[in-house]
Nucleic acid binder design. Structure first.
Lengths: 131, 131
DNA sequence: GTCCCTGCAAATCCTTTGCACTCCT
DNA sequence: AGGAGTGCAAAGGATTTGCAGGGAC
């Protein structure tokens, strides 16, 4: 068990992520944080994001668009990814509580979590495409 | 619409993937195919895998372990990923037909597909961990 | 003082791409 | 012949890591 020391960078990363309603990539967050801490490095952002994921304080979303996204909301919920603009949205779809148990029966082992991503075109892009 | 020409490499990649019960990464498939075609290049494997995905003949699985995996089974089904050994297993869990429609109501746009990944420890690794 | 954390840059991993050449059709 | 496909190697993007210095406790 390693001891954790305070760092203003980590605080900033965490609060910046919590303040955002989207699900930024490490790089997007880095750009954002640079406004307050112009000297922070991308490596530090990655290191702290991974640390926060390990601590269970944030969530990493691998939706398949190249870069991982991060989410300060760790409560179980699902995501909608727009293939046109790349935005990742939360879905207030209630958790399928029984689905892990259902999977458990078929999985050759122990299931402890699951992810669901929906893909399609968001309203903004649907509108844009009509023009 | 581009014309498609036969290539023994593409045939080999496709049949090699269909013959496997696991869900290999591009690199794993490359190693496998090299036994038959020692001169095939990794670039060709990637190019053809992407082409086959576009044609809808195979499926790309981005489960978040670094490299994409590929699956010759394009029928809708879900996957179990062992965090210990990295194996990706099929789950004979029946499709949640209504889930896309359910998501549709909350998604700000049009949903056309979804992916579900379960994570945990497979039987082999559970056994190994006890020793 | 100790040890964690940082900035920086180099390294690593996975994937894509440019180019000259080869093989289908 | 024409153009799609290939091998090779270099480029690309995302993420990690080694190191020397800085900050928390």
């Amino acid at each position: 068990m390693k001891t954790l020391k305070y760092s203003r960078q980590r605080e900033s990363i965490k609060s910046c992520l919590m303040a955002r309603h989207d699900h930024p990539t490490a790089d997007a967050l880095y750009t954002s944080i640079r406004e307050e801490y112009p000297n922070i490095s991308l490596g530090t952002v990655y290191r702290n994001l991974n640390l926060l994921v390990e601590l269970g304080e944030i969530q990493k979303l691998t939706c398949g668009d190249g870069a991982d996204h991060f989410d300060a909301d760790t409560s179980p919920h699902y995501h909608f990814v727009c293939r046109d603009c790349g935005q990742v949205y939360d879905l207030p779809l209630k958790t399928l509580d029984n689905i892990n148990q259902l999977a458990q029966e078929y999985a050759a082992g122990h299931v402890d979590s699951h992810t669901i991503f929906f893909y399609g075109t968001c309203k903004n892009c649907l509108k844009k495409n009509l023009q």
